[in-house]
């Protein structure tokens, strides 16, 4: 099953809608709650990142019985230093993100923590594509 969403630009009020929809679908399909939570958190953090840094983008979720694949693609500025971005506490998020309870430099570290595989393709000035895999708990 394939789900596709457009993540709106600069609209914090709607950030998280796609993740909530994916969570509801996985629940309906009867996946284990721990798997659902890991997918929901990883995708939610990814969505927030796209709104904060990249004026939104596209999310594609492929659901298989044994794993969930998520791809988040944006046309944002790209990530200059992935190692730095993966460091807990390092953040380039603006003040507006902090007012919403984000921008603490936990986004990518959180995504890594909750996924089984994370690949980041990024090009400065072109955009970033996050590929995430969550294996379904047996």
């Amino acid at each position: 099953m394939k789900l596709q969403y457009t993540i709106p630009a600069d609209d914090f009020t709607r950030a998280g809608e796609a993740s909530a929809a994916v969570k509801a679908t996985l629940k309906r399909l009867g996946f284990p709650s721990e798997t659902i939570r890991r997918v929901a958190i990883a995708m939610y953090e990814g969505e927030i990142n796209m709104v904060i840094h990249a004026s939104g983008g596209e999310a594609t979720v492929d659901i298989f019985p044994e794993k969930i694949l998520m791809e988040l693609a944006d046309n944002g500025p790209g990530i200059p230093d992935i190692d730095k971005a993966m460091t807990e506490g390092f953040s380039t998020a603006p003040e507006t993100a902090r007012h919403l309870g984000f921008g603490a430099g936990m986004g990518l570290p959180n995504i890594k923590k909750y996924t089984d595989e994370l690949t980041i393709h990024t090009e400065l000035g072109k955009g970033t594509r996050l590929c995430m895999v969550v294996n379904v708990a047996q």
């Binding site: 993740s19 929901a40 919403l100």
Partner: peptide, 10 residues
């Protein structure tokens, strides 16, 4: 804000 509710739901 809305993200508090979304976070709680996640």
């Amino acid at each position: 804000n809305l993200q508090v509710v979304r976070t709680a739901e996640m």
